[in-house]
Design a protein around this nucleic acid. Structure first.
Lengths: 173, 173
DNA sequence: ATTAAAAGTGAGTGATCACTTACAAATGTA
DNA sequence: TACATTTGTAAGTGATCACTCACTTTTAAT
């Protein structure tokens, strides 16, 4: 990936996250990236392709953290680590996750993939622990993760005490 | 409000919720509403004014439910009712809340108002119950509400068992 | 040094955007 | 009936949109 290619990617991520995909013009991206507008299309084919490149780039960076959770064999620890996930979002990745959550509501197509494996590994964990309804418990974890992500990304709530409260409340401390 | 005015409002809500504000053209709204494009601007001044009208309309309908929670004097019951809120979203209002949640991520300006009063009434409730950190507990409730709303609006999860699980987990049964 | 490919530019392109305007139909009131 | 106001339309408007194209510069391998 060229310097300018990365410039475009970062500029687009910033603008898509703050103004939305449709609210951002390729002209604005080019200006923010310090590049001619034509270059965007040379490298990413079209605006949609640029969005896909951003998501691939961000998910590749993030998939490590998902894998870390999935690979924990102790079910209790796996669940705890899953809950802790949104609390450990690298502030450098805030824009990426804001974009991902914004896309959730109007472009569900970018929601599949790594998330399904993640979900199944949680169902498995609750199953191992003998819970009556592992799917339901997993949905609860997803509720927590989405809710916490909303708080942290949108209202920059102080993460540490919130995490402690959750783990205590869930008798997972 | 005229028939056609309401047509425009509903058509715009539907399209804004599914394609986003910037992803929806006034031409598309007029077509969906079965109305000439000019009429939109006669009634709502501009596209932004139409969005505001939708939000006013939706919040006026919904404020009843928030008020119902706030007016409960028993603190325990008030908290329970607050948690139950996203579970009792009228399916007819799904589009409105999808729009509200989508706007959260790129247009925070539509987030204030009734929500603040709601938050304070929860802090008060936890305070009355002698909790150590009422603000933190209230944030937790907001986490739950946002997470549940995401599940229900986006993945149409079955609401009933999830509500029961949450109330149990929160020892609020 | 030659040269072909890749990176990069800037001035276009038609299409679509939000919005206006001139005018007609409907409505309410005297 | 007369007439002023409101409701509605259709054909525009300039601006901006995503994208293309002809062209130059840079890079890198022989």
């Amino acid at each position: 990936m060229t310097d300018k290619q990365l410039n475009i990617l970062m500029a687009a991520m910033k603008l898509f996250a703050s103004k939305g995909f449709d609210g951002t013009s390729t002209n604005a991206i080019a200006t923010e990236a310090g590049v001619s507008e034509g270059l965007i299309f040379k490298h990413f084919k079209n605006k949609e392709g640029l969005l896909e490149a951003i998501i691939n780039y961000g998910m590749e960076k993030s998939s490590v953290y998902f894998a870390e959770v999935i690979l924990i064999s102790d079910p209790q620890k796996r669940i705890e680590k899953a809950i802790a996930l949104p609390f450990s979002i690298d502030p450098n990745d805030n824009q990426f996750w804001k974009l991902m959550y914004a896309l959730k509501w109007q472009r569900g197509e970018y929601q599949s993939g790594p998330f399904e494996l993640f979900r199944e590994s949680l169902i498995d964990a609750f199953d191992q622990l003998g819970y009556e309804n592992p799917e339901l418990e997993t949905t609860m974890i997803e509720v927590i993760i989405d809710g916490v992500a909303t708080q942290i990304l949108l209202k920059n709530t102080d993460a540490a005490p919130l995490l402690e409260t959750i783990l205590k409340k869930y008798s997972l401390k």
